[in-house]
Design a protein around this nucleic acid. Structure first.
Length: 618
DNA sequence: CCGAATCACT
């Protein structure tokens, strides 16, 4: 509060306070030479007088009289030397020792009341050091800006280092680092490598890639050679901005010079490539780390194992291989590693192996946490082992892991897929009374359960309460509802929901369109079926073969042979064949009509197209 | 003292 007022005031009256560097050094050398040799009485008296004045100034300020700024001038006439650089230096140093904030207030007063005072380099250094130690960052930055020539390089570096370590301050005042960046950019004083790195790391911590880039550009411009830490930060900022390819290039580039960034940064990059299943890149980076003498750590392997486990059942064995290798190499997998592997096994429905690993983990002294419980409960539910799932859920609660939105979601889905709808609904109803928030997944899970259990109207009602609860629906909210409505001869209601989706900016799944087409066929509404099919084709969506067959069937049963043939043509365009069942329906339809010529023409056409299709595919 | 993991999605 006080500081911000002072800041405003000083911005209005920013004056040149200090002599250029050469003047200061000239006056210093002059006084020191006169100190050794002919020390005249006059000079001694002058110095004594300045010391007395300085003491008076300090006393006045430290007594904290409410308006010391005015009292000083009434106490001390200008010829007392109150603005003399020696006096100013003495005051600044004494105040800096006892109360840095008062020293800053004095500094501001000085700049607004005298245009001719100066601060010698050692006083300026003491002043800045005191402000730095007091974490008075704004004050220190203001002082640095006022002193056009920076005192000592190491003082500025120490200021930057300390400021950049103070993450809390950087978070509280979002512009702090930005303004520091301004100072660094406008200053010719170059920073040392550790200071550059700490500033880069700070801009990463407060999530300001823009500042990072400015700092990095200035660093390169100032000819400071980056080191491994710099490269690590650069890789991190590129990963954060989604420029993984560039991050990879940086890694390759610096590694050729023998620089290997820190494991954390490289792990972020590996994690990205692993999630994208670019395992070639992953192994390349691993080799680079090992040959560079900076071997991957547990979290690096964990990222790879996790990606392999999420990549599908075929990759789980590879994850297991790495997991075993990791243990042989002497790493101790932690609860996260075990959870990832157990999850992979659960997702591949290999519950026996998952259970073995669960016990291996416990016998290694690692206790399952809420994540571990959730993945294994989910696994047992998926494989239909409801009792074990329920037992483990109770065990989890008894171990002190509270029920959460996520664990309830797991339970809901487990109960639903095992046909225990009533219990799922009961759990859903109890959630708010137990203080557990329901999220979009909670609703989606139960909506899907109700739809699959034939309780479509309850599901639609649940959808309304989701909207009423102010929760934003997702694609998975609508998909099962639309599917169920189409199955239950309510295709028109389903299209209503498709429109709601689109009005919310949600793009329906391709199969959702298929459902709608089939839904209209069920109703015998071939016009709407055709309309939705052509909408799909216009949007470049590929309908399923089954969907198109249904429409052909529907059209022919209505006697609309021309339309049916049009759909058949589209099917051939896409590359679908024509099932013999559809052929029979079409032909019998045509033969049943009173135009045998047309029937034979159509048959011919079908045969030509079929043979064309076979030719293309053989 | 860092950078990790679990639920829904036909």
């Amino acid at each position: 509060m006080i500081l911000s007022k002072l800041r405003c005031k000083s911005i209005c009256s920013r004056r040149r306070l200090f002599y250029p560097l050469w003047e200061i050094s000239a006056s210093r050398s002059c006084s020191s030479s006169s100190g050794i040799f002919s020390h005249s009485n006059q000079q001694e008296e002058e110095e004594a007088r300045l010391q007395i004045t300085a003491s008076m100034v300090c006393d006045t300020i430290l007594r904290r009289l409410p308006r010391w700024e005015t009292s000083i001038l009434s106490l001390l006439p200008p010829n007392s030397g109150v603005f003399h650089s020696n006096c100013v230096g003495l005051v600044i140093r004494r105040l800096s020792e006892s109360n840095p904030i008062l020293s800053f207030r004095y500094f501001l007063w000085l700049s607004s009341s005298s245009s001719s005072s100066s601060l010698d380099p050692s006083s300026a250094a003491a002043f800045l050091t005191a402000l730095t130690n007091a974490r008075a960052w704004r004050a220190a930055m203001h002082a640095i800006c006022s002193m056009k020539c920076l005192t000592e390089v190491y003082i500025f570096n120490s200021f930057v280092l300390h400021l950049c370590k103070d993450t809390r301050a950087l978070h509280c005042d979002e512009n702090l680092l930005h303004d520091l960046c301004d100072i660094i950019e406008s200053n010719s004083t170059s920073l040392t490598l550790p200071s550059w790195n700490s500033a880069l790391s700070a801009s990463l911590r407060i999530k300001r890639p823009d500042i990072f880039r400015r700092l990095y550009a200035k660093m390169i411009e100032s000819d400071t050679a980056p080191d491994a830490a710099t490269a690590g930060y650069l890789i991190r900022v590129l990963c954060r901005d989604g420029e993984h390819a560039n991050a990879y290039h940086v890694l390759r580039h610096v590694s050729r010079k023998g620089i290997i960034p820190d494991v954390v940064s490289i792990t972020q990059l590996i994690s990205f490539f692993a999630k994208g299943k670019s395992f070639g890149h992953v192994s390349g980076i691993l080799h680079l780390m090992i040959s560079g003498g900076s071997p991957p750590d547990l979290l690096t392997y964990q990222a790879i194992i996790d990606a392999l486990c999420s990549a599908g059942a075929t990759m789980v064995d590879e994850a297991l291989r790495i997991f075993r290798e990791l243990k042989l190499k002497g790493y101790s997998p932690d609860v996260v590693t075990y959870t990832a592997v157990i999850d992979g096994l659960c997702k591949s429905r290999r519950m026996d192996e998952a259970w073995l690993l669960w016990w291996e983990m416990i016998s290694n002294g690692i206790l399952p946490n809420s994540y571990t419980y959730n993945v294994i409960i989910n696994g047992y539910f998926k494989t239909g082992d409801i009792d074990r799932a329920l037992n483990l859920y109770d065990e989890m609660l008894s171990k002190g892991f509270p029920a959460s939105t996520l664990s309830c979601n797991t339970m809901l889905s487990g109960l639903c897929i095992n046909g225990r709808l009533a219990e799922a609904v009961k759990l859903f109803d109890k959630m708010p009374t137990r203080g557990i928030e329901r999220d979009v997944i909670t609703y989606n899970t139960l909506i899907q359960g109700l739809c699959e259990g034939g309780e479509t109207s309850d599901a639609v009602e649940l959808y309304s309460s989701l909207i009423a609860a102010g929760i934003e629906p997702s694609i998975s909210t609508y998909t099962p509802l639309i599917f169920a409505l189409c199955n239950e001869m309510r295709a028109t209601d389903a299209t209503e929901l498709v429109r709601s989706m689109e009005s919310r900016g949600l793009v329906p799944l391709v199969c959702t369109n298929d459902f709608v087409v089939v839904g209209f066929c069920r109703l015998g509404d071939a016009d709407n079926g055709m309309a939705w099919l052509s909408k799909m084709l216009r949007s470049n969506l590929k309908p399923r073969e089954e969907t198109m067959c249904r429409l052909v069937e529907c059209l022919s049963s209505l006697g609309r042979v021309d339309d049916a043939l049009q759909v058949v043509n589209k099917m051939f365009d896409i590359g679908y064949g024509l099932g013999s069942a559809i052929c029979r329906v079409l032909v019998s339809k045509l033969c049943g009509e009173d135009s045998p010529q047309r029937a034979s023409r159509v048959m011919e056409e079908i045969m030509v197209l079929e043979s064309y299709f076979d030719a293309v595919h053989s």
